[in-house]
């Protein structure tokens, strides 16, 4: 089955409506974080939820569109972090199929694995394009590692490894809590249902 055939069969109205919601979550989580004063980004929550409920390809498309729209609305820098979002979508989809959304501690562990991979992918982009500065709260960590004599790429990578696993771990935990409390009749509309509620099957 080629990609166009796959898309025609698998991107059904419930799936692309959830993808739209995923885009809105990715873009709107900044508002939630600001409203509840939580010191996190949570900007990939929508992608993780779509990956868990619909699969890898819909999550990747959600991630690409989210970052494109974010670069139009918030900061053009977001466009360059599309590869990071693709890695998050890919790993979130794979981990869902491996049963990482069946227990809370597995979700946290999965999130931390994804966080490490996301840090490795985003470090070269952040270092070579922005010199490690993205005007985020974690910039001071780059400054610290750089001041201790580390190479720029190493400093950015260490900063990513220090902050991304925590952020992604919490993102996955939040996704797990949301998905585990979602009504079953809603979850059953999506192809990923069997990977989320194995106990009910």
């Amino acid at each position: 089955m080629n990609i166009s055939e796959y898309l025609r069969r698998n991107i059904t109205p419930p799936v692309f409506s959830l993808m739209t919601v995923g885009v809105a979550i990715n873009l709107g989580m900044g508002q939630v974080v600001a409203l509840l004063k939580i010191p996190l980004y949570l900007d990939s929550l929508g992608t993780v939820i779509v990956a868990a409920m619909c699969g890898i390809i819909p999550a990747m498309i959600t991630g690409i569109i989210s970052n494109l729209l974010a670069s139009a609305v918030f900061s053009p820098a977001m466009m360059f972090f599309i590869p990071t979002m693709l890695v998050i979508a890919l790993l979130a989809g794979i981990l869902t199929r491996k049963g990482f959304f069946l227990r809370w501690w597995k979700a946290v562990l999965g999130g931390m694995i994804v966080g490490v991979c996301a840090a490795i992918v985003s470090a070269p982009i952040s270092a070579y394009l922005f010199g490690g500065i993205t005007l985020a709260g974690t910039d001071f960590l780059v400054l610290y590692f750089r001041a201790t004599g580390q190479e720029l790429l190493q400093a950015v990578l260490y900063q990513g490894l220090a902050s991304d696993p925590i952020d992604k771990g919490i993102t996955f935990l939040l996704a797990f809590l949301i998905l585990s409390k979602m009504p079953r009749n809603l979850l059953m509309r999506f192809p990923g249902y069997h990977y989320l509620r194995q106990r009910d099957a």
């Binding site: 739209t20 885009v23 809105a24």
Partner: peptide, 14 residues
Amino acid sequence: FILINGLKFVDRFK
């Protein structure tokens, strides 16, 4: 649909 409604849904989301 996703491209156009994405931004509209952000407003609804907020």
